[in-house]
């Protein structure tokens, strides 16, 4: 009896050691990759921006046979991405997992103890960036960025709004205000609808928003876009000047990219870089970018890691300076 228990304990210990070895190390031959189905984690709920982007990509990868096996898409939402990317983290070393990133990939670790940062993952590349439109209500005598800066400087402090606090909206408002030389009272919202009615009701003087979400209001002449933070003007609204053209050289944007679990061999990461370079040439990808007003901006592998690091540091510095974290 006692002997049996000993054997059992030894077996258990051995199997635990083996399991421990198993995780964190890919044992297959990278030259044969891919040999299995892929599990694609979406760290947000169905119907959201990240979800739609992921499904477009998976669709291209499957239909063009760029990934020769099945891809199973799974929404693991919660904790502003913490849950889904935490799941990816727990599959360290397994090259048959992937996920798409959005702004929360940088901001969530800044405000919560997620147990991971961008640096933990195997980073394939950035495919596009999310940029914002700075808008005011129409018909109040402010029709250009210059008129806004004059107005804001005269007021001294203006009331502006955006989504969330530890978020790109807050950072954009802070950057613009710092450089022009006015103060902001930033009002955080958690829904786009309430943010927009706050502007139309006159409670706010300006907001930042996604181009796609605000386009209808600009088309109808209810809101006026004064500035766009992307590097190139929007196709839809070429008349809105970019921040760069107005002298702002260091705007931030939200990177949208593809990541794998930590400790995936470099050869497999390179396989994904090659594959995604093909995928983004598909017309459906351009169509998706156009419809959602995303800026095409491809950055691969190590360069992606470097740029993410710089963006994360800037986010942190600005948020610290303004007391948001």
């Amino acid at each position: 009896m006692r002997k049996n228990k000993g054997v059992l304990a030894a077996t258990l210990a051995l199997s635990m050691v083996l399991t421990a070895c198993g995780s964190g190390e890919y044992v297959g031959d990278a030259a044969d990759y891919p040999e299995q189905d892929l599990e694609w984690t979406i760290a947000f709920g169905p119907g959201g921006g990240n979800d739609i982007m992921a499904r477009v990509l998976v669709d291209i990868l499957q239909q063009e046979n760029l990934y020769p096996h099945n891809i199973a898409v799974e929404n693991r939402q919660g904790g502003s991405g913490a849950i889904g990317w935490g799941y990816l983290l727990s599959n360290s070393g397994d090259p048959y997992h992937a996920s798409t990133t959005s702004g929360s990939f940088l901001t969530t670790p800044l405000q919560a103890d997620t147990g991971w940062t961008y640096a933990d993952f195997t980073l394939v590349g950035q495919l596009a960036t999310d940029d914002s439109v700075f808008a005011v209500q129409s018909g109040n005598g402010i029709d250009s960025w210059r008129e806004w800066t004059e107005f804001a400087k005269k007021q001294g402090t203006v009331t502006v709004g955006g989504i969330g606090t530890v978020n790109v909206d807050f950072i954009v408002h802070a950057l613009l205000a710092d450089q022009v030389g006015y103060e902001v009272d930033y009002v955080p919202f958690d829904e786009e609808g309430q943010l927009q009615t706050a502007l139309t009701s006159g409670a706010l003087q300006a907001i930042t928003s996604n181009p796609a979400e605000i386009a209808g209001q600009i088309d109808a002449g209810r809101m006026t876009g004064l500035l766009f933070t992307g590097s190139e003007p929007l196709n839809r609204f070429p008349e809105i000047p970019t921040a760069e053209s107005q002298g702002f050289t260091n705007m931030v944007s939200m990177p949208r990219g593809l990541i794998l679990p930590p400790n995936v061999p470099p050869e497999i990461r390179d396989w994904w870089v090659r594959t995604m370079r093909k995928a983004v040439r598909d017309p459906r990808w351009q169509d998706y970018l156009d419809k959602n007003d995303l800026t095409r901006n491809e950055v691969w592998g190590e360069q992606f890691r470097k740029e993410l690091g710089q963006t994360a540091e800037r986010f942190q510095a600005i948020l610290r300076k303004h007391g948001a974290i």
Binding site: G47, G48, A220
Partner: peptide, 13 residues
């Protein structure tokens, strides 16, 4: 979100 997916632009128009 569904409107956007069908290529419709929600808005006052």
């Amino acid at each position: 979100a569904a409107f956007l997916m069908w290529g419709l632009q929600p808005g006052p128009l």
